[in-house]
Nucleic acid binder design. Sequence first.
DNA 1: ACCACATTAAAGCCAAGGCTATATTCTGTC
DNA 2: GACAGAATATAGCCTTGGCTTTAATGTGGT
Lengths: 151, 151
Amino acid sequence: MTISKLQVEPALPSPPTQAQRFGKAREAQAVALLEDYVELIADLLSVHGEARPIDIARRLGVSHPTAVKSINRLKREGLATAQPYRGVFLTESGHAMANRARARHRVVVQLLEALGVPPETAESDAEGIEHHVSDISLRAFARFLRSRDLR
Amino acid sequence: MTISKLQVEPALPSPPTQAQRFGKAREAQAVALLEDYVELIADLLSVHGEARPIDIARRLGVSHPTAVKSINRLKREGLATAQPYRGVFLTESGHAMANRARARHRVVVQLLEALGVPPETAESDAEGIEHHVSDISLRAFARFLRSRDLR
DNA sequence: ACCACATTAAAGCCAAGGCTATATTCTGTC
DNA sequence: GACAGAATATAGCCTTGGCTTTAATGTGGT
Ligand SMILES: [Mn+2]
Ligand SMILES: [Mn+2]
Ligand SMILES: [Mn+2]
Ligand SMILES: [Mn+2]
């Protein structure tokens, strides 16, 4: 009986398994920009009653043409509507995505803060993390926060 | 004395503040691919003694030419070296990045599992989340895990 | 030693998401 | 009502990171 590895190297996951993990992360990244836009547009609409491209650009830290190009993608994908020189509005499915995005955003921020991350760091880390939190993880986060609140 | 808002809308962050948050997330995303590559290359080197482009491609779930193009970027940025038809190796700074990436990856997975996320979900969510966890948050995660272990 | 097959390299295509520069259209003020 | 300045639209450029197709190179098995 031979002992194959004295130093127990943690074995790598199988190539297909690992490929699937990376693939999911790439997929999540592909919708991240859409989520940020619709979430921001929903916020602007609810606070200011309108979402103008220039405000969207300013808050995203991006040039106006870049914002406009992305807004066109939102329109193409049925998430937003806009007539020339009017503001941007969300379709039904745009609103639905915005609501999911905002809910996730809040839970992620709350979790980070609950773990002792200072507020501004929690906000900026959450801006990237949120897009990679699956429904399963999201529910786990919420469960943890609940259990912690009523303690 | 007028009450301006009966329904207390949570105010939006200032445009520059919000822009800074989004900017950080974009910056993190820009290095995410590099981190995944060097982490994977380091793993292949330590387990198989070599990191061949085709294995890298397979594990990332990407075509060989795509992997080769990214490896060229690693070389350009001083993270890896490779001669034609030899495998890929990491420079000092490549190894440094790989070690940081792996440490963060492990902590994120452990945190997710500690919160009740099932292992495979933890792994695939972590693959995206890891790139957006700041040093401050990482330390908070580690602290939480430690406090929880010795309970 | 040869040859088939695997691997690698090279070339060229595409979409996304950044940018600048310029043209057009609105709009608030006088 | 005119007009200056703000906002918007349009055009064109760049890099990244995907892809396929084709060519070149290594390599293991007989
Ligand atoms: Mn975000
Ligand atoms: Mn968000
Ligand atoms: Mn990753
Ligand atoms: Mn990783």
